[in-house]
Amino acid sequence: MTGTLVFYSEFDDFEQWKRLLQREIPSLDVQQASTVTTPEKVHYALVWKPPENFFQRWPNLELVINLGAGVDALVGRRDLSDIPVTRLSDPNMARMMAGYVLFAVLRYARDIPFFEQMQKQAHWQYRHPRAAEEIRVGVMGLGELGRKTAQELARQGFSVTGWSRTFKEMVGVECHHGMASLSDFLSRSDILVIMLPSTPDTRGLLNDQRLATLPHGASLINVSRGDIVDEPALIANLSSGHIGAATLDVFEHEPLPDSHPFWAMENVLITPHLASVALPGSAVKQIAANIQRVSDKQPPLHCVDLNRGY
């Protein structure tokens, strides 16, 4: 195999990815974007949130590999021609996501924020645990990560309802689809888990009107993209108590500015976009396999439709 793979990410470790990729494909030339001197030799790009006009530099590009499951940073770009774009589909990423959401759901299901407050006051206060089946968890988005998460929550005994834009069917999960069913789905979610991709149809989807349809005191967990939720509306609902608590791993602007109101809200738990990340040791085999397929003039696997955004 000949050709160069160009790497761009301000988050990932280039040397680690280079070592692992060349272990899988010894003949592959792996370079950082800033060091490429012969752009016409670049046939593959492994990227996470590349800057504007990044793809114009590589006239013979045949494959773009997104370093993650969400491809919103590649949607609507004028510099990206009609070539295959793939996302990572790593079982370890799905397992990591399901584990994070399960932690967040259990934290609310077992009233852990209440006990954290009691500990600060050195106050011994008992609350009887609720049965898992009495707690309604709504998973909003039933893609690969959402399905794995919904299945894990159902396995733990929670009453799980799923919502997606198109029809889905899952054992142990009551599935709803389409905008006509969204309000009913939200009204039955004691804990809402947001797992939708960021697309023109989903940005701002959870506005003040839709947040108001959640049960009073509901908890919200967002592990997808920050722009799906109207942040000022969420702040207002958290302040009023209509939404009792939120676990937020994603935000409209990242890093979250120091002055953002979320930092000071006692009913908000913040993590820095780490619910599920690409693990090089396991994801590299999928990437190498797709490079080999393109080199052999075969279509790559796990392609995304940038017109849909996923």
Rank of each mutant, 00 (worst) to 15 (best):
S9D: 08
S9W: 13
E10C: 04
E10Q: 15
F11I: 12
F11N: 06
D12W: 06
D12C: 07
D13V: 08
E15C: 00
E15P: 00
Q16K: 13
W17C: 03
W17R: 08
K18R: 14
K18N: 09
R19Q: 14
R19E: 15
R19Y: 03
R19H: 13
L20F: 03
L20P: 01
L20K: 12
L20Q: 13
L20A: 08
L21E: 10
L21N: 11
L21S: 03
L21Y: 05
L21I: 06
Q22G: 05
Q22N: 12
Q22P: 02
Q22V: 09
R23M: 02
E24H: 09
E24C: 15
I25E: 14
P26T: 04
P26S: 11
P26M: 11
P26A: 10
S27R: 12
L28W: 07
L28C: 05
L28Q: 09
L28H: 11
D29K: 15
D29V: 12
D29N: 14
V30W: 08
V30F: 07
Q31M: 14
Q31N: 05
Q32F: 00
A33S: 13
S34H: 09
S34N: 07
S34V: 05
T35A: 13
V36F: 08
V36H: 02
T37G: 01
T37Q: 14
T38D: 14
T38C: 02
E40K: 08
E40R: 13
K41R: 15
V42A: 01
V42I: 09
V42C: 03
V42S: 04
H43A: 09
H43Y: 06
H43V: 04
H43N: 15
Y44T: 09
A45V: 10
A45L: 03
A45W: 08
A45C: 05
A45D: 04
L46C: 02
W48E: 11
W48Y: 13
W48R: 15
W48V: 01
K49L: 04
K49Q: 12
P50V: 11
P50I: 07
E52L: 05
N53H: 13
N53S: 11
F54H: 05
F54L: 04
F55D: 04
F55H: 07
F55L: 09
F55A: 06
Q56C: 01
Q56V: 00
R57N: 10
R57P: 01
R57H: 09
P59E: 06
P59R: 12
P59Y: 01
N60D: 12
N60G: 05
N60I: 10
L61G: 06
L61R: 08
E62P: 02
E62I: 02
E62H: 15
E62R: 15
E62M: 14
V64Q: 12
I65S: 10
I65A: 14
I65D: 04
I65V: 15
I65R: 08
N66A: 08
N66S: 15
N66G: 06
L67C: 05
L67Y: 04
